Computed example of a mutant assay.
Amino acid sequence: MTPVAEIEVMDRPSLVALWQDLFGGQPPKSLSRPVLRRILAFEVQARSRGGLPRGFVAKLERAAGEAAPKRSPEMQPGARLLREWNGVTHVVDVTEQGYRWREQTWRSLSVIAREITGAHWSGPRFFGLTGRAGG
C-alpha cells in the first residue's frame, strides 16, 4: 500500500501521530478527518518529490506578506477624527482614556462606528484609518 493509500484508511489517532511526525506539533482540533487526510497526503507527496519548488515557496511568502492586514496608525491623544454619515458630521477626539464622542468616552472606535451606523463596522476602517471607508 502506498503512503497516501494508508492515510486514507487511518483513524484519527493515527492521523494525529503522522501530523506530529511531519509537522512537529498537534493539528488544530477543528480539522476534520477528511481535511487532515488531504493535508497529510499533500505533504507526504510533496516531500516524496523533494518538497515544493523554491520559486513557488517564494511566491507564497510574498503573497502572504502582501495580504497581511494593515494596522491603523497608533492614535496620539489630541488627534481628532471626522466622519460624515447620513448628513451628520461626527467628531471623535482621541484622549488618554480612549475616544471621546458625544460627551462620552469609549474604549473602541468600532463601538462608536456601530453606534453611528447601527451595523458592525471596523472602527479604524469607518473613520478612514485603514482601507476604504464606505458610506
Rank of each mutant, 00 (worst) to 15 (best):
T89C: 13
A5S: 10
G65N: 04
L18D: 05
P27I: 01
E74P: 04
R47A: 06
V9K: 10
D21C: 13
G123P: 02
P124M: 06
F42S: 09
G118S: 10
E61N: 08
Q26R: 07
N86A: 15
R62A: 12
R114Y: 03
S32E: 08
R49K: 12
E84Y: 02
E6F: 06
G25N: 05
R100M: 11
T2Q: 05
S14K: 02
A63Y: 07
E96V: 13
V92M: 02
G98I: 06
K29G: 09
Q20A: 06
A64I: 13
N86R: 15
Q20P: 00
G24N: 10
M1G: 08
A17R: 14
S122Y: 00
S122V: 10
G131K: 09
V88K: 13
E66S: 08
M1C: 10
G131H: 07
E61Q: 13
G87Y: 05
A113T: 04
Q97D: 13
R71T: 12
E43T: 09
L15T: 03
V9S: 11
N86S: 15
D11H: 04
V88G: 01
V16T: 10
G65P: 00
S32K: 11
F56H: 08
E74F: 11
E8Y: 07
R49N: 01
G131Q: 07
R83G: 04
K70A: 12
G51S: 03
P34N: 08
S108V: 12
R33F: 01
G78D: 07
R114N: 12
L40F: 01
K59A: 05
V44P: 03
V35E: 08
H90M: 06
W85C: 11
A58V: 14
L60R: 14
R114E: 11
I7A: 00
Y99C: 03
V9F: 08
T2E: 07
R71P: 02
A41L: 11
G134K: 10
W85F: 15
S48W: 07
S110V: 14
T105W: 03
Q104A: 11
A63L: 14
A64V: 12
G55C: 07
P34F: 09
L52W: 06
P27Q: 06
A67V: 11
P28F: 12
M10A: 00
P3Q: 09
M75Q: 00
V92P: 02
S14Y: 03
A119M: 15
G131S: 00
R49L: 12
L36H: 03
S122I: 06
P73S: 05
A41W: 02
P77A: 06
R12W: 02
R71D: 08
R100F: 11
P73R: 11
Q104E: 14
A41C: 10
L22C: 05
A41G: 12
G87E: 09
E74D: 10
T2A: 08
R100E: 01
R33S: 10
V88P: 00
R114L: 13
P3W: 00
E103R: 14
S14N: 10
E96W: 09
F126N: 01
V111M: 12
P77M: 06
